[in-house]
Simulated scan of single mutants.
Amino acid sequence: MNCMKAIAVLEKGVVRVVDDVPIPEIGEYGALCRNHACGVCSGTDMGIINGETTEKQGFLGFPTVLGHEGAGEVIRVGSKVRNIRIGDRFIHPNLWPDAGNGYTKTYGGMAQYGVVVDQQAMVEDGVCTPEQVPFYKKQHRFPAEIDWKDAALLLSLSECHSAAVNFGVQPGDRVLLYGAGPMGTALAMFMKLRGAAELTVIDSVPERLANSVRVAHTDRTINFAQQDTAAQIGDEKFDLVVDAVGKSTVLLEGAQYLRQGGKLCSLGVLRKGDTQIDLSQLPNNISLHMLNFPYGEYDIMDETIAYILQGKVNPKDFYSHVLPFEQIDEALALVRSHRALKVVLDFEDGNC
């Protein structure tokens, strides 16, 4: 059995670089990818590490291989693959649910190797329906013009792009957004690109608020650690209020700033134990749009890639550190302390 290195959560709070995860078997319709980079998600990855992710949210049990923001290159194809070629670049090379040697995957991108599948060939050959293919809507090609580190941001950017579409932002809308991390800033940027007229962002980290102004052209920022949010907003009302933090308390606070008929939007993944909202506390005549998980992110990825190639979106605006994957402890410390906007792990030097 040939094995590879991967980043695994052995139990709640215990993260290690391990070297005994089997290199995945690809099968007739699969393609083996060598991973080059993977982003660290401050939401999903940290939720898994902290033991806050449920089975319904994709957690299959410890020990589990992290990562859903990987970018890799096809190095071998199965005998019935005809729509994927060696050298093709893919977002999120995956692992099988049973990764082998006792490991599960959630979501398996932080490994030296991963798998993509010739889904089109499987459907054409009658093996399964489009909805039944492995990794359904969980893989996507990207062009060589986008480098590996930037590609590690493609999924997050597309998640935020799809959220702007799903939330239904319209030209002229006034938006209040909680959270100026990479996801919040990306969502703000795509809302602006889709026509939002006025954008106010709330956070407590000055550097992140400044980055939101630079990248998303935010019109106003509120530092809730230094300013009274209610006093700053006053009697203003917004068309959309968005929680990009992932806390029900944020949703309840933000709801009071909605106009009649406005929409309260949740992008952040609510943690286990924070899954109920007292609806009686919400204002009358508003809509609640829950987006605990991305929807349509792979469908809109080509449009996201086009924005990047046109120079309208720069992935480098959304990460601050690149570290060898062996330095996962340092990467997690940077994420936890908010000293990093986002960390991208480099898998190139460690590949065998």
Rank of each mutant, 00 (worst) to 15 (best):
T249F: 08
A216M: 09
D317I: 07
P143C: 09
I7P: 04
G43V: 04
T44D: 07
Y178H: 11
E73R: 10
A306D: 13
F325G: 06
D147K: 00
V245M: 09
G261W: 07
V250I: 14
Y113E: 00
A121T: 06
A6M: 02
L66I: 03
F224R: 14
L66E: 06
Y319T: 08
T221E: 01
H161R: 10
I26Y: 12
S248P: 04
D239W: 00
A333C: 09
F90E: 03
N166H: 11
N351V: 11
Q57Y: 08
R76A: 15
L193Q: 13
H92N: 14
K247R: 15
E159C: 14
T44Y: 13
L264D: 03
S212L: 01
A230R: 12
E198P: 06
Q132C: 11
I305C: 04
N292L: 11
G268R: 09
T64N: 05
V165I: 15
Q256M: 11
M191T: 01
Q139S: 04
A152Q: 01
G109L: 05
L199C: 06
V335H: 06
V116E: 04
D274H: 13
G61H: 12
G114I: 00
D203H: 01
D243K: 12
T129W: 10
E236Y: 07
D228S: 14
A210Y: 05
G168V: 02
A230S: 12
N94H: 14
I48T: 07
V343N: 10
E145C: 10
N351Y: 11
G168P: 02
K137R: 13
V74E: 07
I75Q: 03
F59N: 04
V74F: 09
I202R: 05
A71K: 02
A186R: 02
T44N: 12
K272Q: 15
H36R: 14
C33M: 08
Y103G: 05
C41Y: 04
D239E: 05
C33T: 11
G39Y: 05
D346F: 01
Q112W: 00
E124W: 08
G39A: 10
S158Y: 02
L199F: 02
G246W: 05
P93M: 07
I277A: 05
H140P: 01
W96A: 12
T218L: 11
S287A: 15
Q310I: 02
C38N: 09
L323W: 04
L288E: 04
N101I: 01
A180F: 00
L240P: 06
